[in-house]
């Protein structure tokens, strides 16, 4: 039971990162590799806000959320919008987002240095809970609940709201969307804003959970998140959650069966197999499209 819960909680962290990641991919068909930098930004700025300003964590999260949204808009404007209509927009978008991510990280280093930082121990109540003989922290439970809630809310937004209809139209055909009079630019920006805001908050929660944040944490999770969104099906929000949980469980059980040295081998082997056998992923209804 403890193992199972460990896996679920580990997976919910991956899912938290992956949900924002996959949102942009699903709607705009772009992999935003600056997402890792946003994740680190959220963590480091969150720490700054809490330690320097003495703000409570509950107020810090909305601040980080807003900052993330702003970053998302910037990323869309700088790294993606100028590429619209270019035949190589896919490659170029990958690389422009990597470049912008590097710039963001170096600004973070300028502001906060390269040291590993963390939230003060009292920033979040360290309540322990017990369930069927397994223990976990309140925070872990909260992360799981947030991941599931986010997935449900975002799925609803995309499926039902006016914004979501716009998003889906763009996902299907950006040209048609423009012809229909949709403000493609604004919807893209909004999508990026939501995605990055979630990424930034994920950074805060992640840091609270593991008690460490530095410039590189985003990259450490990014690779796993890539695996997660493919496992679940690129662009699928429930897929990101389920993919995250599967990866978390697979890693935990791998540690207990084949040994921890081969843990990541299991994770990437699983990813590889899924791609070869079912490239559209578990929840991917979409056709595997060419890039």
């Amino acid at each position: 039971m403890q193992l199972f819960l460990d896996g679920i909680f580990l997976g919910s962290i991956y899912a938290l990162f992956a949900i924002g990641f996959t949102l942009v991919f699903g709607i705009l068909d772009r992999l935003n590799l600056a997402h890792a930098a946003v994740f680190s930004t959220g963590a480091l700025v969150g720490i700054e806000v809490v330690t320097r300003w003495g703000v409570s964590i509950w107020l810090a999260i909305p601040i980080v959320f807003a900052l993330g949204a702003l970053l998302g808009v910037l990323i869309e404007r700088i790294a993606f919008r100028p590429l619209a209509g270019r035949h190589d927009a896919h490659f170029a978008g990958l690389i422009s987002s990597i470049a912008l991510g590097a710039v963001i990280l170096s600004v973070l280093q300028a502001l906060y240095g390269a040291d590993t930082r963390r939230f003060p121990a009292e920033a979040f109540p360290s309540t322990r809970l017990e369930f069927l003989g397994a223990t976990f922290s309140l925070l872990q439970l909260m992360i799981l609940v947030i991941s599931v809630t986010l997935m449900v809310v975002l799925t609803w937004v995309v499926a039902k709201s006016k914004l979501g209809r716009g998003m889906r139209t763009i996902a299907e055909n950006p040209h048609a969307a423009a012809v229909l009079g949709l403000n493609v630019g604004r919807i893209s920006s909004t999508t990026f804003a939501i995605s990055s805001a979630l990424g930034a908050v994920a950074g805060v929660l992640f840091t609270l959970n593991v008690n460490a944040a530095n410039l590189g944490i985003g990259h450490a999770v990014e690779l796993k998140a890539l695996a997660v969104i493919v496992l679940g099906g690129l662009g699928s929000l429930p897929g990101a959650l389920v993919g995250g949980l599967i990866l978390g469980l697979a890693e935990v059980y791998a540690v207990n069966t084949v040994g921890s040295s081969w843990r990541d081998m299991v994770a990437f082997g699983l990813l590889f197999l899924v791609l070869v056998i079912r490239p559209q992923g578990i929840f991917g209804g979409r056709k595997v499209r060419e890039v």
């Binding site: 460990d6 580990l10 593991v210 944490i217 990259h219 450490a220 040295s261 843990r263």
Partner: peptide, 17 residues
């Protein structure tokens, strides 16, 4: 003997083991 990656930050599964 348990191994992990230098970029890892969540050790709960290993520690439970």
């Amino acid at each position: 003997t348990l191994t992990f990656s230098k970029t890892d930050t969540d050790f709960r599964a290993l520690l439970d083991k």
